[in-house]
Amino acid sequence: MVYSTELLKGTLKTIVLKLLADNKKMYGYEITQRVKELTQDKIQITEGALYPTLHSLEADGLVTTETEYIGKRVRKYYSLSVAGKTRAKEKVSELASFVQTMTLLLDLKPKAI
């Protein structure tokens, strides 16, 4: 089962920030593949959602970028800024609390993926 876009929309920033917190620096394609791998294909981040989000995180100063030239093309690596590290912790904590509340609200029993 692949989760709906509506469910994922509000969590994308958190997912990206958490991945960057765990992996130091990543580029776009790597992020999409890592998410697929970690969630066993249940979450597939589209390019149309990922790149605007990365752009927004960069504009907010939460990530920094470094570029690597691969022949004629440029690969942008993203890593967390100091503010980004703080925000990542806050967002993960907020989402964890939200999931806990939803579990209570919907009277669900937590189980493994």
Partner: peptide, 25 residues
Amino acid sequence: IDHIVADLYAHGIRLEGLRDNLLDH
């Protein structure tokens, strides 16, 4: 690669950072 860059530009991708990301992907 030049063909892809030109196509991205033709499709309205003007932000350089976004274009670099899309090109690589």
